[in-house]
Structures are given as C-alpha cells and as structure tokens.
Design a binder for these strands. Structure first.
Lengths: 243, 243
DNA sequence: CGGGACTTTGAGGTAGATCAAAAAGTGTGG
DNA sequence: CCACACTTTTTGATCTACCTCAAAGTCCCG
C-alpha cells in the first residue's frame, strides 16, 4: 500500500460522479502530501482550528464530530477510505467540526495549495470538487430527515444501509461478512441515540432476521427487510454512474 | 424592485465570503433568468425532478423539504432573500429535496448553463460558488447537532437566533420587530418537533423574557439570554468578513 | 358571516433517556 | 500465560421529554 493508494481511491470516487480526462486524472494521482497513521479515537483535525491540508482517508474510518456545551457528541458524517474527508476546508479553512479516527486510521494530508492549484488550472476538476462537496451536503440532508423523523430502529438500520452501500460501492453485497468497526457508542453518536438504545435496536434487527453485528463484523441476512425498516433509498449517495 | 434586485442581493452575499473583482461582479449582475411569483406554500422545485435552473430567492422565505414514507415532513434548510437556494443543482441536477415557499415568495430562475459558463470562465467565481455550497453544508451540520442533541427549547431558540442573524446580516439587531413569517407548524418541521410543542416552547421563551412572536413579527427582548438558551455561536453562518 | 388555517391549552400515553450493574471482550505488562 | 485495567456490550428498572389526541379560541379572507 504505497502513499498513492489513497489517491487512486479518491480518483475512483471522483470519477463515479464526474467525467475526468487522463490529464486531470494524472494530476490527481500526482498530488503531494504525507501519510499519517492515527491511533484509535484521536482527533486529527481539531474543532475551530485553521487548517492548510485536507485529509484523505486511506484506510480505516473517520468521523466528523460536533458537540454541545454539555459535552454531548454528535457524529455528523462518517468517512470511509477514498473520501477526502474535509475537501470543504479548501474553501473554508476554519474547521467547524473535528475529525477523529473511529478505530485506527491512515490518512494522507494534501496541502490546500495543491488542490487549489488544480481547481484553478482545470475547470473540470474544480467542478468535480464542487460536486463532491454537494454530495456530502446531500448526505447531511438525508441524515437530518432520518435522525429527525424516523424511529430509532429505522435510524440504526438506515446508517447500516448507508455504510454497506458505500463500503461495497459497485461491489457485491454478498461479500459478507463485512468489516464494520463502529462501536455501539459511535452508532449512538451518529444516530442521536444512547448506546443502550442502539444495543436494543440491534437486538431487534437481529431478532427480525435483518442483520447481525458481532466482533466488528456485519452480516446482512435480509437486505430488503433492512431497507424497508430504514426507508432506505441509495439515490442520495450518488454512487451510480448517472447524474 | 427590478428583476436584477435579486442578483444584487446574491452578489452581496457572495462578496461576504469571497473576493470578487468588478468583472466577476458585473458577470453576476448580468445573469439571465426569469422572475416568478409563488403563492403561499407551493412547491416550485419538486422532489426527484431534474432541474435546469437554479432558484434565487428575491423576496419571502423558502424551505427545503424532505419527507418520510409516513408523510412526516422535515425542513432541512430555510432560505432568505439573496440565497441561491439550490445552487447545488448546478452540479447535481436531480433535486434530492423539494423547495417550497413559506408564505409568498418571489424567485428568479437562472439557467444552469449561465452559471456554469461563469464558473468555467472565472476561477474566482467557481470558487465562490463552491464556497457558498460549503457554507450551506456547514449549516446542515450545525442543524444536525442542534436537532439531535439539544432539548426542544434550545432547538427553537437556535432556529430563531439563526434567522435573526441571517435576516439582519451586517445590520442592527435593534431594528425590532422583525418580519418573521414562519408558522409554528413550519418551525416544528424545521426543528423535528410537533407544532404543539413548539407552541409551548415559544411560551416558555416569552415567559423567560427572551423573545416574543406575534402576528408574524418577532421581537427579541433579551438577545444574550436567547443565545445562552440556544448555545448559539454564529460562526458557522460565515457572515463575517473573515474566512 | 362563514370557512379554513393557525394558535393555544389540557389530559394522557410512549419512545427513548437515565441510572445501575453485570458480563464479555481487549490489551498491557509482569 | 495470567492478572489487571479498561472499554464495550448487554440487561433490567425507572423516569421524563415530547408526542398524541382533542377541543376551544383566534385570525384572516372572501
């Protein structure tokens, strides 16, 4: 796994949504940066900090965190390998949220200057970056609907559906079991539930024969039931070829 | 109020966050489009529809709506005059959410082609559009924290704080009372509460001497108390001069 | 003057929180 | 390989913030 492996993943992600010619592709793959290994659950971007690098997730998962004055935590996004987790920081360098590893993570820090230079030089890349940020916002919007209006069982199911779709994008949902390192506490942080209640909802999902989580592994037994519980429609993820 | 009045507002908004030279500014003001008046509470962009125009709010308020299969509605964003409500549709033309007037609205529909042409021609404008979409996402993220983790009283207070800041941006908070056409039902749709509970929270805010809503008018009596209840920090709105 | 949308208040129910504690897993150092 | 500390999972019992249902009151407009 060379340092450019992350860039390959990111390029693939960008090309899911934007047409890029070979010159643009080569420019992405040539982006400078430095690999950093983050050991479990440490912030690698701190809230309020001014940053001059964007963080590409190479392996592991990362969460975007906010918190209330009372210390309640909210995960507003989960990032998987191939995500440029804070691409938005290129145009808004003050971090409004923290980024933290969910388990061990490897990131590749790319200087804003380099990304900005690409955007200046290539309108197609500028548009691709813009589009990826917009998809990011679409996910936030979907979470708001789910977290605001669906019951707890559906919230948990929905997050699982989303993660399965993203982690297996293009691939088979049948490569079960799937690595799924999120703890119940973290699932609670993402769904605005307590970990106790997440636990009960997971039991319910298991008892309904939909899905099973054990030892950081996820086993989907009945995808269509899970989707029905979650009211899940993957369109908002924009993982398809089209628009 | 000519048709270009909306464009003037939008330019002002863009310049809050991005440096634009006179050529870019002139290009914005020259954007073609057509004025449309929407009578109360009708969708002017429908969920799932493919759009080729972006909607600039000229007067009135508009809401971005999603809903569950059960028909529960969630407002994921409120747009005020000067907002290009679905600028994101320029790079993602399938509308993932509906746009609806909150009361009567006047919009100015600008063809995607025209906006795209500007972004191609001017990297500064491309960046400005990108940045505005990112600020939009920052607001979604903040709503997620607030709606997920704060008690009902704070949720309502927070939405009021945000609207006051945005509607009076740069201006005085002392120009009270402020026009505030949101109904309690709509406040509930935005905060994931029932209108009944919103009503009780507004009473509580009134009894605490923080704020009063009467006849579509808002009167803030104790801004600092309101801010304290809401745990409100306006940084995420990026209305300041800086970053 | 009548009808529709919004606001306000009351009474009672419930989904999910809170509190508490045991069980299971994970890692570290001796 | 075991002992110890720490984190995560699981379960039970209780509590409460907010919802639901219902109805009256108010405002607005034709």
């Amino acid at each position: 796994m060379t340092s450019s492996h992350g860039l390959t993943l990111w390029l693939k992600r960008l090309r899911l949504r934007s047409a890029l010619d070979d010159i643009d592709a080569a420019a992405i793959l040539a982006l400078p940066g430095q690999v950093q290994r983050i050991s479990g659950s440490r912030d690698f971007v701190k809230m309020g900090e001014r940053v001059d690098h964007a963080c590409l997730i190479v392996s592991g998962l990362a969460g975007r965190f906010s918190q209330t004055l009372g210390g309640d935590r909210q995960i507003t996004a989960v990032h998987i390998p191939g995500d440029m987790a804070d691409l938005h920081s290129v145009v808004l360098s003050r971090a409004a949220t923290a980024l933290q590893g969910l388990g061990d993570v490897t990131i590749y820090r790319v200087p804003h200057d380099a990304i900005k230079a690409l955007a200046m030089a290539s309108p197609a890349l500028a548009e691709a970056f813009w589009r990826d940020c917009v998809v990011d916002a679409a996910v936030l919007s979907e979470w708001q609907l789910v977290n605001g209006r669906l019951p707890a069982l559906a919230k948990v199911a929905h997050l699982i559906c989303e993660m399965v779709c993203r982690l297996t994008a293009g691939g088979q949902k049948s490569t079960m079991p799937l690595d799924f390192p999120l703890t119940q506490i973290q699932l609670g942080d993402a769904t605005s539930l307590t970990s106790v209640h997440v636990n009960r909802m997971l039991r319910e999902l298991r008892e309904q024969g939909a899905v099973e989580m054990k030892d950081r592994q996820l086993r989907v037994h009945d995808w269509s039931r899970l989707v029905a519980i979650a009211e899940f429609d993957p369109a908002y993820l924009h993982l398809g070829k089209g628009d």
